[in-house]
Simulated assay, not measured.
Amino acid sequence: MAPWRDDAMPVAPRPPVALAVPNVSEGRDAATIHALVEACEVPGVRVLDVHSDPDHHRSVISLAGEPLALQDSLVDLAAACVDRIDLRRQRGAHPRTGALDVVPIVAFDDDGIGLASEIALGLAGRLATEIALPVFLYGAVATSSDRTRPRDFRRDGLEGLAHLVDEGGLVPDAGPPRLHPSAGAVLVGVRPPLIALNVWLPDATLTEARTIAARVREAGGGLPGVRALGLYLPEAGMAQVSMNIEDHRAAPPALVIAAVRAEAERLGVEAGDAELVGLIPRDAVLGGPTPSAMRISGFRPGQVIDPTGVA
């Protein structure tokens, strides 16, 4: 019999890599942000990007890793959020429902929805049983056609959501039947890649920022798949149009930024630099204007995500 050789064995397949972009309701305290990021750093998971904003009082953490390791990372993050964030004392410009506010698992295409859904549903169960947090599902794993996006749960604020749950008008998909007293609830979902962009308006009023946002978002007859808010951020000392691009093929970032600048010009308002929050898919920047041409300040090559090499 021939001797056994390592090189005669088939090569084990590489474990699938998943991407999650948890948003936490802390953007000011550096020690807390560091502790939350550190909680994510488990074997098999990489922290790709961290974006914190003191006015939004929010941090966006981009994680990639093996599915079960990614679940472990997010459970540890949830526990750290419960320990360190108290929504009863926390205020910020960005709407929120929880300390660990929203956990999207990213499906880059239809083929990825199955794996992303398994991760999301498994995570929801673990957050319920291990951390005792109520969980609402959205996106591809939503259990109600009336609530498929995070904004569907946030429309009446945290207090409104708590009242709705207390009155029995909405039941968590997993976990306790009431919101956590200090940590609220967690929104767990599956969605395609989303691009979060802000455009600064150095001399605009809040009213002007809101007008521009209303004109560029889909709901106002603007660009398809674009969600936009007009905000005034005291820490920065200026207004901002804060946007999510849900379909970058229908509304490329360059087109969205150009639309904001055009609407600002119509109002006689100066539009400043743009800002990318988190990651951007490679195909959203290939073949179009460069980030510098779009005036995206602080852009780093590491913010470009490729579904074939996220880890």
Rank of each mutant, 00 (worst) to 15 (best):
A311K: 04
A140D: 11
V256S: 08
S144R: 15
D156Q: 02
A271P: 04
R96G: 07
V304N: 00
V75Y: 09
G221K: 08
Q90T: 14
V102T: 15
L223W: 10
D29M: 02
R28G: 13
D146E: 15
M243T: 12
E265W: 05
D283S: 14
Q71R: 15
A120M: 01
S242R: 07
L115A: 05
G288A: 11
V75S: 03
G302W: 02
R215H: 13
D146Y: 05
A284E: 08
V103D: 12
L279Y: 06
V260E: 12
T32S: 07
L133W: 13
V50R: 00
P252R: 06
G139S: 11
P281F: 01
G125T: 11
A259Y: 02
F299W: 04
V135N: 11
F153E: 05
G189D: 06
V60Y: 01
V304E: 00
S59D: 02
E159T: 11
E66L: 04
A214N: 13
E130L: 12
L68T: 12
V47M: 04
D7L: 06
E38M: 05
D166A: 15
E130D: 15
P3F: 13
L231F: 11
L63M: 08
R217H: 08
S62V: 01
G112N: 01
R249N: 01
V21K: 01
S292G: 00
G65Q: 07
P176V: 12
Y138Q: 04
V216I: 15
T205F: 09
V75R: 09
R300Y: 02
D110V: 10
D306I: 02
D86Y: 04
S145P: 01
Y232P: 01
A239P: 00
V75E: 11
P224F: 13
D6K: 06
D83S: 13
D110L: 14
M294A: 08
